[in-house]
Amino acid sequence: MDVSGILFVFLGAQIIVATVGTVWSRNPVTSALFLVLNFFALGGLYLLLEAQFIAVVQVIVYAGAIMVLFLFTIMLLNLDNERALAEKFDLRKGFAVLLGGVLLVELLYIIGLKTPIPIKQTALTTVQLGEAKYIGRELLTNFLFPFEIVSILLLLAVVGAIVLAKKNFTTSPKS
């Protein structure tokens, strides 16, 4: 196993541990910190795949900006430990765990088959592929339409968040 292989296993294990930690920790702040770790490790994986720009954006935007806001919100809300959410183990849950386990084993088996992954031929070197310049070019040529239409999705998120979260929402005057 070469260096990138070892790094991949290391980062992958870190992501799994951090994800499980996010779900399982009772304290919301711990959860959020585990999520930060998850995002950092994901950034590392992007770097291994030679996507430098995406890796940097991942760390700055997700691990940096978004999670800091997240942490501030949690601290401002002053949440208690979520003990009330802890549920007892029942038969239905056991069945769900069983089904989930079966799905996991299936996926692991299929991924273990080592299907040859087709490598797309391109004129660019791997270093160029990950550069902001080439990502920008792709976004504004081949992926122009999805790039632009996502703005409507963001607008929807803003409007939806306001509708659901605004305090003292008054209905507009009836005509």
Partner: peptide
């Protein structure tokens, strides 16, 4: 008592989707 104009905006964007 939930007659918000945003209701129509959200429904419209849903149709775009």
């Amino acid at each position: 008592n939930v007659h918000y104009g945003e209701y129509y905006i959200v429904a419209f964007i849903s149709v775009v989707g």
